[in-house]
Design a protein around this nucleic acid. Structure first.
Lengths: 180, 180
DNA sequence: TATTTTGTTTTGTTTTTCTAATTTTTTAAA
DNA sequence: TTTAAAAAATTAGAAAAACAAAACAAAATA
């Protein structure tokens, strides 16, 4: 039986708490938009990756293609997304948000997220970067070990959102300019 | 529309990655134990809180009581848990793992988690504490804002597992002894 | 060309998840 | 104390999620 330090246990507890809050948030937002949780999360993932193939979505969300197809069909029936065959590879189905779908996500009440963001923004710049570096370090600890996470290159439409900052050990950290 | 700094965007990306890896892990373990994901996560939560009431479990997992009941019934049918009325409050149903249930969790392949733990253990002591402090700081950012997370007191059976370490701002940090 | 691989869908089944209503027990009020 | 309200769990019923297995078409490879 492996020895677990208190520090590690507390880390797991904290991570579980993050998981819980995040799940709770998603459910609340889903409910307020009148979607199921799976549908709402799918919408969010499409938003930041559009246009994206059904298979990529399934991989991103850790679902089987069959499950993804069912969810997408329902979203399409509601007029929130479009599914079109990729012209250059007719096996693929590309998914995008409709105007209505975008509008729905825009309208989703983000008060909670905004408060979180405001709190983060209120931190000193160096501290923001330190938090980010730490989280990315945790990602690295988990990430490199997970076979299914490995092939994932970018998450999110990076070209239009953000640049991945390499996770550094804290002793490599130096002064950082505000990136934007 | 709120302004999102690159640092914040990257934080969200990293958090989503953690979410993804965690979900992937749970699904894999569930599959290997022959349970559904919901059943497996329920088993884990029972393990660290046993004995625990059905309602507490539901709150912990962000599920409705009715949903929880359904999951618990299936676990009981498989002989993995027991459900007994609380003697001091006969409305409550207390849930515990059976020997078989414990054995199943013990047998769950934890190679991945162990690798993560090993990696964490390989870090310098001060760095472990810094990571923990950072994660707990993120929890605090999210946590205090979420109405449903607020009433949560302890997560996990703290008396037998770990002591909550207060999340500090980095500039309050000092040398830490190895806690165990 | 034939074969294999890849991407998606279809089919069929189990499980999850919810809402609404019901039962039992506890707590609080009159 | 009796009654009313609240709390904890279950039941019933229905939509959706999730999966495996099989089928299908398109693309890549031998």
């Amino acid at each position: 039986m492996p020895f677990k330090s208190d520090t590690y246990k507390n880390l797991l507890i904290a991570l579980r708490q993050i998981l819980k809050v995040t799940a709770s948030q998603s459910k609340r937002l889903a409910k307020e938009t009148g979607l199921s949780t799976a549908q709402f999360i799918t919408m969010q993932t499409i938003e930041s990756n559009s246009p994206v193939s059904a298979g990529t979505l399934a991989r991103e969300l850790n679902l089987k293609q069959a499950t993804m197809t069912a969810v997408l069909i329902r979203l399409e029936e509601r007029g929130l997304i479009t599914r079109t065959r990729d012209a250059s590879d007719k096996r693929r189905v590309l998914v995008s948000l409709t105007n209505e779908g975008s509008a729905m996500l825009e309208a989703a009440p983000t008060a909670l997220q905004n408060r979180i963001e405001d709190r983060f923004a209120a931190l000193e710049n160096w501290e923001q970067h330190q938090l980010l570096a730490s989280i990315q370090r945790v990602v690295k600890l988990m990430d490199a070990e997970d076979p299914e996470a490995a092939p994932l290159l970018e998450f999110g439409n990076l070209s239009t959102t953000a640049t991945i900052v390499q996770a550094n050990t804290a002793d490599e950290q130096e002064a950082w300019d505000s990136p934007s």
